[in-house]
């Protein structure tokens, strides 16, 4: 699978702001298997970009293509198929079911299109150090714990691309690395790409294509 951004600009942006951007208003191609690190300072439209690519917002000019298909033409029904099979996401604002247990939150995603067996949830929780939180409601978890839940949730489905929007903002360095290694190994398993957007350059993100937003 391939994702192409063809001269997209948010409709609410002033054109002068984007002259230094390597993404806004340009042609950008994301090929499956190659990771991309998008460095996006505050206010550069990082979350907007992720939402545009995921099909949640349409207030942009230009075109976004999944392979040859303009996603502006996709129905909600087709989008749901892409979101089940081809594209996963970690939201900056996490978006968990606050009143559900951590395990329910994860199962809700896993059961939609199972890529891993249920035991994998425990393994991943163990790897990120939240194994004892699985029975608690998401509301009672700290933000850092919720961030790790969101990371695990995004890895329970098949995908070609995973969109990451500041996924480690509330993690300490040790947990960042663990989380990054987990995401990376899951990508290798699927020969998938990370589109990793963050405020600043990450030190352990090496050998990847870097784009400034």
């Amino acid at each position: 699978m391939q994702i192409q951004l063809l001269e997209i600009i948010p409709t609410y942006f002033e054109k002068s702001v984007i002259t230094e951007s390597e993404i806004w208003g340009r042609k950008v191609v994301f090929n499956q298997g190659e990771h991309v690190h998008i460095i996006a300072p505050s206010g550069s439209g990082k979350t907007s970009l992720i939402h545009f690519i995921y099909g949640m917002r349409k207030d942009y000019e230009g075109r976004i293509l999944y392979d040859e298909t303009n996603i502006r033409d996709l129905t909600l029904e087709t989008f749901s198929t892409y979101r089940q099979k081809n594209i996963s996401i970690i939201f900056q604002d996490l978006r968990l079911f606050a009143d559900q247990t951590v395990r329910n939150n994860l199962e809700l995603k896993r059961q939609l299109n199972p890529y891993h067996p249920p035991q994998k949830i425990d393994e991943m929780a163990m790897a990120l150090g939240i194994q004892d939180k699985l029975g608690r409601t998401a509301r009672t978890c700290s933000y850092g714990e919720q961030q790790r839940i969101a990371i695990i949730r995004s890895l329970l489905q098949p995908f070609n691309f995973i969109l990451l929007d500041e996924p480690f903002s509330h993690l300490d360095d040790a947990n960042r690395l663990k989380a990054f290694e987990l995401i990376k190994s899951e990508c290798e398993l699927r020969n998938a790409s990370m589109l990793f957007a963050d405020l600043k350059e990450l030190e352990f993100f090496t050998n990847e294509k870097r784009l400034r937003l």
Binding site: S80, T81, Y82, F97, K109, L112
Partner: peptide
């Protein structure tokens, strides 16, 4: 809304 965002099909 969140279910739809996560990829649940509206029809289903």
């Amino acid at each position: 809304q969140l279910l739809l965002t996560l990829g649940y099909s509206p029809d289903w």
